[in-house]
Design a protein around this nucleic acid. Structure first.
Lengths: 203, 203
DNA sequence: GTCTATAAATTGATAGAC
DNA sequence: GTCTATCAATTTATAGAC
């Protein structure tokens, strides 16, 4: 079935190109013409695969979600110690350090931009699910470490917000060194939190 | 001079309206017609005060910068203890908790959106200066507490990134409770960092 | 200085040939 | 299924009357 094969390939090429451009330029600055050009697909053909620009963006988010889930599953399988899994999460931004410093977090920045869309649009809340996946998975790890429900959730939120905030600052200041150094601090915080140097009481 | 007076008032009305809309809808979704409407100024008149949409956005950033600096100066004058000053910084988002949960941080979200503009545009890096002001002021406080240059800067970055990340998550999940709870955690981290429960050595 | 009307450009979306 | 040509709407920016 050469036709169907070509279809799937062009469709995924469009999603790949859109994913790149949404990260580099954001949703509003990215035109369908630009996506078509990078995917090497004629402009008019885009609407055969995606009825609207919004539906293309939703496909991009779905692709991100699938990637994130696959990565989490791989870490879950490859590391039995939840501490190791959380460390992998913290270090993940380093894999694309240059890109993060240049364009920010591909999930967080997209999420924040889409939130500014008209309330009620499905796309406006679609990005938020990406960050929710982070928090939920981190929460699972803290629970596996014996933390109770509320505490595990709070720790997961703290971890994800620290990593997200670090990427935002590293991007703002365009510094991979800042990214690496601050992520090491998050790691240190995690270590101290999981096995405090001493008792937790205050002076 | 009634003419000049009216000019300044309309100009500042435009900046005020644009500041609100940039926070609520972002830069790209906000049209000059919408700004003019909210400021109750005819559309064609906008271009008398601001040659381009970019220059209006720059005026908004300048207004934000002035507000931030004024707030920092007030805290510096009103609190002699740098710890108190840093706590005020951490609690600042609570003043507009509802707005933060609904629209995100007015400085951080604007900053992130403008970074996606064409590289080389002055406006693309203008937002970044806002976050830099935060970091620089926080760094001053840590130095006043006796921290050496590099350590003070790293702590300031950690504090600002934690607060920014917290606002991002609170906005994403639309929760003022999350905002308050996670900011309390940042405060606790600050307390533990400034006077550790015990020695900093690892087990 | 103020405002109306409109130009000019971009772009999302569609119609219809092949 | 694929692609060209074009429509329709939005929006920045300007020209020019008052």
């Amino acid at each position: 079935m050469p036709a169907a094969y070509a279809s799937l390939e062009k469709r995924s090429e469009l999603v790949r190109a859109a994913k790149e451009l949404l990260h580099e330029q954001g949703f509003h600055r990215t035109s369908l013409a630009h996506v078509a050009e990078r995917a090497r697909v004629p402009l008019g053909n885009v609407h055969y695969y995606f009825k609207t620009k919004e539906s293309l963006a939703e496909a991009v988010i779905a692709a991100h979600g699938a990637e994130i889930s696959a990565q989490f599953q791989a870490w879950t399988e490859n590391f039995s110690d939840p501490r190791q899994r959380l460390r992998r999460l913290i270090r993940w931004p380093l894999d694309g350090a240059e890109h993060v410093a240049r364009f920010g977090c591909p999930h967080g920045s997209l999420c924040q931009e889409l939130e500014k869309l008209e309330a009620g649009t499905p796309l406006a809340t679609a990005g938020a699910r990406l960050l929710a996946v982070y928090v939920d998975w981190a929460e699972l790890q803290f629970r596996a470490l014996g933390r109770r429900a509320k505490d595990a959730r709070a720790l997961a939120l703290q971890l994800v917000s620290s990593v997200q905030g670090t990427m935002l600052l590293a991007h703002t200041l365009r510094s991979t060194e800042l990214l690496a150094e601050q992520l090491r601090r998050v790691e240190r915080w995690l270590g101290d939190t999981l096995s405090p140097p001493q008792a937790r009481s205050r002076a």
